[in-house]
């Protein structure tokens, strides 16, 4: 069954187009990374999928219905972000105590164990939590709902290194025990790469690619060597990124294809996060060009 089906989805804020024709489908129970630069439209897309905001035009179906004002979507999906809010009259323990009434598959044991592990204070109010602890609590809440579609928008913002790696581990373990569709948007692609099965890369409100992690790893190749040789080899190819290493040597990233082996030019794999970065950069150059 298709979990998410977006066809030419658009959304405008005032005059600016946040989503500019998003088309993709999410079919199986997978962990998908929603990757994109700042302002690419990640948050807008997730909020439309969660039914928080209205779509502009196009079609969006979550569990075969429009998520806006749909009880079935609300009951089977959750969006964890830093804007989650809970009443100030309820303590964290109260919130966890009330959640099972709403979410039929709420995992009380998991929630309590994680709560204890991360040493949160049950008598604390949600709004008084520090940034990192708030993110941790939201993450626990999101995992424990066991929603068929669980979405995290920048879940690790504010978490320290140790908590971040614990979070990835908890997410993976819980996903293996209870497979479901999980979507994570994050800036820390490199450190959560091992979790992801699919990558949905969006840029300026459009889908760049929606591929498995393995395919993204094979997407590009880097050529390194003396400038004239590298340039000759890369001529006519789709160049994603170039960098002058020193006066003689050049580093060029091109879309992967069959390539003759030439002495003096080494080919190197390009990491997934670099691929995503190069593909979504507007110019061919980098930050270095600013200082030329």
């Amino acid at each position: 069954m298709t979990v998410i089906d977006c066809q030419d989805l658009r959304k405008k804020y005032k005059r600016m187009a946040a989503l500019d024709g998003i088309t993709f489908q999410l079919k199986d129970q997978k962990i998908t990374g929603l990757i994109g630069r700042n302002g690419a439209g990640k948050t807008t897309l997730l909020k439309i999928l969660a039914g928080f905001i209205r779509k502009g035009s196009g079609d969006v179906l979550v569990f075969s219905s429009n998520p806006f004002n749909n009880l079935r979507v609300s009951g089977n999906s959750i969006l964890v972000d830093d804007q989650m809010s809970f009443p100030d009259s309820l303590t964290l323990a109260d919130i966890l105590g009330m959640a099972p009434d709403f979410y039929k598959r709420w995992d009380t044991e998991l929630a309590n164990n994680l709560f204890k592990y991360f040493k949160l204070n049950p008598k604390q109010l949600h709004s008084r939590l520090s940034k990192g602890n708030k993110a941790t609590f939201n993450m626990i809440f999101g995992l424990a709902t066991r929603c068929e579609l669980t979405m995290f928008d920048e879940p690790t913002n504010g978490m320290d290194e140790a908590v971040r790696s614990d979070f990835y581990r908890a997410l993976l373990k819980d996903y293996i025990a209870h497979p479901r569709s999980i979507m994570i948007s994050s800036h820390h692609l490199a450190e959560m790469e091992h979790l992801l099965e699919d990558i949905l890369l969006i840029h300026k409100g459009k889908v760049v690619f929606h591929q498995s992690l393995e395919e993204v790893k094979e997407y590009a190749v880097a050529l390194q060597g003396t400038t004239d040789l590298v340039e000759k080899l890369a001529a006519g190819k789709e160049i994603l990124h170039t960098k002058q290493l020193d006066s003689q040597r050049n580093y060029v990233v091109i879309k992967k294809e069959e390539m003759p082996v030439i002495d003096g030019v080494t080919t190197q794999p390009v990491s997934v996060s670099d691929v995503c970065m190069y593909v979504t950069s507007d110019g061919k150059g980098g930050i270095d060009d600013v200082f030329k």
Partner: peptide, 26 residues
């Protein structure tokens, strides 16, 4: 296999009512 839980509007309203009676004590 995907398992979707279905709540009726009545159930959700009732749950929200219980929640709000706790939360809006102020």
């Amino acid at each position: 296999m995907m398992f979707l839980s279905n709540s009726t509007l009545g159930e959700v309203v009732w749950t929200q009512l219980k929640f709000k009676m706790n939360a809006y004590l102020g």
